[in-house]
C-alpha cells in the first residue's frame, strides 16, 4: 500500500460525536459519494449506494450490507432457530443448548397457528410480548396474557393471516423474572465490534450501560399495559410521567459489575459476563453465512444490468 501524502478524507452526514472525532484526528471532510477513505453512514445508505460501487482496497465503511439479518427481529429469530436446529440435527446437544438465550418466539402472521398450539401448553396467566419487527425504541410493543387480546388487536389493525406477507410482529414469551435492583427493572447495553465475518472477528467493549426503568417492577394485571414499567428503552422512559434524566436511570457497566461482585462474589459475576460474551459471539455465528453471502449482490447487479439494457 502506497504511503499517504494527504490526510484521510471522511464522508458523513452526522454532526455529532463521530464528526468531532474525525475532526480531532485532522481528517478532512468530503461530500463525494465515491471518493472517500472513511465513511460513517446511516445503515440504509449502504444498500442504496453500495450496489454499483467497487470499493478501493483502503476504503472503510461502518456497515455490512446484510446487517438486517441481525437487526430485524424476524430475521434474527429465523437465524437463531435455524442454527439451533442444525446443531440438534448433527447431534450436538450441548452446542444447541448454548443457543437457549432467547425465549420462545414466533413470527406473525406466518406462525400464528404454531403459536396458538404452543400457547395452550403454557399455564394460564403466562405473559407474552408483541413486538413489531421493523421498529426500534420500544415503538408498538404491548403485553398480553389471553389470546383474545391479540384477536381484538388483529381485528383493529386489519391484519390478514396471509402466510406470504412478511412477518410484521414477533410474539415472544415475556421474561417474568428479571433481576431487579432497588425494585427496578433494567437491561444492559453493550458494544460489540465486528471487523470481519470471514473469519468471524469480534471485539467487545469493556464499558456499556445498565439502563433502568424509572418505575418499580410488578406484573399485576392492571400494570401490563404500562410500558414504562416493562420497557427499559431510553426512548420509552424519556416520555414517561416524571422522567428525570439525572435520576440515575443509567449506570456505567462498571457499577453493575461492582454490584454483582458485592452480592454474588467474583466467580459468579465472571461466569455471568462470560455467558454474555458467549451469547454475543453465538448470535454473530448464527448470521455468519448469510452475512458473507454475496449472492444477493450478484442478483442485484444482474437486475441493474438488465434494467440498463431495457432502457
Amino acid at each position: 500500500m502506497a504511503s499517504r501524502t494527504r490526510p484521510i478524507r471522511f464522508r458523513t452526514t452526522f454532526r455529532n460525536t463521530i464528526y468531532d472525532l474525525f475532526k480531532s484526528k485532522g481528517w478532512t471532510e468530503t461530500e463525494s459519494d465515491t471518493d472517500w477513505d472513511v465513511a460513517w453512514v446511516d445503515k440504509d445508505w449502504i444498500r442504496e449506494n453500495f450496489l454499483q460501487q467497487t470499493l478501493a482496497d483502503h476504503q472503510r465503511i461502518n456497515h455490512f450490507p446484510n446487517h438486517y439479518e441481525l437487526t430485524r427481529k424476524d430475521n434474527l429469530i429465523k437465524n437463531l432457530k435455524r442454527t439451533q436446529r442444525a446443531l440438534q440435527r448433527e447431534g450436538l446437544v450441548d452446542e444447541a443448548a448454548r443457543y437457549d438465550f432467547f425465549p420462545g418466539t414466533w413470527l406473525l402472521p406466518a406462525d400464528y397457528g404454531l403459536f396458538v398450539e404452543e400457547f395452550k401448553n403454557y399455564p394460564s396467566g403466562t405473559i407474552w410480548i408483541m413486538k413489531p419487527t421493523g421498529s426500534a425504541q420500544g415503538k408498538g410493543i404491548f403485553l398480553f396474557t389471553r389470546l383474545q387480546q391479540i384477536n381484538d388487536w388483529k381485528k383493529d389493525s386489519g391484519w390478514k393471516t396471509d402466510a406470504a406477507q412478511a412477518a410484521s410482529y414477533v410474539v415472544q414469551r415475556y421474561i417474568e423474572n428479571p433481576q431487579l435492583i432497588g425494585g427496578k427493572k433494567f437491561d444492559l447495553r453493550l458494544y460489540v465490534l465486528v471487523t470481519s465475518y470471514n473469519p468471524l472477528t469480534v471485539y467487545i467493549y469493556r464499558s456499556g450501560f445498565a439502563r433502568f426503568s424509572s418505575y418499580r417492577y410488578n406484573t399485576t394485571k392492571a400494570n401490563l399495559s404500562d410500558t414504562y414499567v416493562h420497557l427499559t428503552n431510553v426512548a420509552v422512559q424519556k416520555t414517561g410521567p416524571g422522567f428525570d434524566a439525572g435520576a440515575g436511570s443509567k449506570w456505567p457497566l462498571r457499577n453493575y459489575r461492582l454490584f454483582l461482585v458485592g452480592k454474588y462474589g467474583h466467580q459468579a459475576t465472571d461466569r455471568m459476563f462470560l455467558d454474555v460474551e458467549e451469547l454475543c459471539v453465538n448470535t454473530l455465528l448464527s448470521v455468519q453465512k448469510v452475512m458473507i453471502s454475496d449472492v444477493i449482490w450478484l442478483i442485484a447487479s444482474l437486475i441493474c444490468l438488465i434494467a440498463s439494457l431495457i432502457r
Binding site: 472503510r60 456497515h63 455490512f64 450490507p65 458494544y191 465490534l193 465486528v194
Partner: peptide, 14 residues
Amino acid sequence: SDKHCFEMYGYDIL
C-alpha cells in the same frame, strides 16, 4: 464486503 466493512452493534441484554 468483508475487506471494507465493519460494524459496531449495540446489544440489548436482559
